[in-house]
Every structure is written in C-alpha cells, then in structure tokens.
Amino acid sequence: MPAQPPAASPDLLRQHGLKATAQRIAVLRAVTGSAHSTAEDVATVVRAEIGTISRQAVYDVLGALVEVGLVRRIEPSRSPARYEARVDDNHHHLICRDCGRIVDVDCAVGQMPCMHPSDDHGYEIDEAEVVYWGRCADCRAAVPAG
C-alpha cells in the first residue's frame, strides 16, 4: 500500500524552506485532498476556503511546491497539467481515453518490456515515468469499443 502524503501544515512548508502563508497552506491542502487536480481545480477549492486568489498566485504557489518536492506535476498528453501530493515513490498513472479519469498505479515490477532503456547513454537513471492509456470500466460499460 502506498504511503499517504503528509498533511498540509505550516510546519511542513517551513521544513521545505517555504514561508507558511495562508495561500500556500490552502493550495497544499487542496492538492493533498484531491489527487490529479488541475490548477483551476485547485483555485476553486482554495477560493472556497480562503476567498479571493488569482490564477497566477495559484500557479506561483504550485510551482514553488513542485520545486521543493512537496507536489508532483504530471503532464498527460491532451490534458492540462495535473498536480498531486504523492511524491517520491515513482508511481505511474492509468488514464481513460474517454473520460480522462486518472488513477495511480504502483511502479511496475518484474521483467517487463521498456522498464529499462536499451541504451542508457551514460545516464544514471533514478526514475521512470510510465503512463498507461485505455478505457476505464465505467466508460467500457457505457459504450462498448467499436
């Protein structure tokens, strides 16, 4: 079972060298509370919690949180960037081609194709980013593949 992200708190921000502002706490709480959120999703949650916040302020806070490793930014093809608080475990994602739902999947194990590059070009590899695309069970049940 994957580790849960740490709770959003002023101390957590300070431990990562960030000033604990109301905006940063609210943005981190929003990301922690809902995995794979877009910046607009985060802004909506933050506005409900603390009132007015600009879109640029949300992007600035998200960028700072990504930079210090408290938040991970993923960029699925054909989708806006998403943010999650599950970091440091090299997990991957399943994305539905129809509805766009994204779910976490733990790192693939064993001797699967493409887990190790055919030529590492001298790189010391410390992370793999894998995205599995398909159709979720709900979409398959609603409209069978044709």
Rank of each mutant, 00 (worst) to 15 (best):
Y132R: 10
A64K: 12
Q56Y: 03
I50C: 14
D106N: 10
D11S: 07
V66L: 04
K19E: 14
V27C: 07
H16K: 05
S34F: 12
A30R: 02
R14D: 01
L70Y: 02
H116E: 14
H92K: 08
K19L: 13
A8R: 03
D41E: 15
H116S: 12
L18H: 02
Y123P: 01
S54P: 08
A3F: 01
Q111I: 00
L12W: 02
A108D: 05
V143C: 10
E124C: 09
H91K: 07
Y123V: 05
G33N: 14
N90E: 07
R73M: 12
A64P: 02
D138V: 07
G17H: 05
V103A: 14
V143L: 12
C139D: 06
R55W: 09
E124S: 13
R82L: 15
V46F: 02
C136R: 04
A128V: 11
R101N: 11
P144Q: 07
P117N: 11
L70P: 00
G33S: 15
V130G: 03
D89P: 01
T38L: 09
H36A: 04
R140W: 02
V46S: 03
D119G: 06
C114W: 09
V45I: 15
C139Q: 05
S37T: 15
L18R: 03
P10G: 03
L70R: 00
T44K: 09
A57T: 10
A81E: 00
I25F: 00
P76N: 09
A39E: 04
L62S: 01
R86S: 05
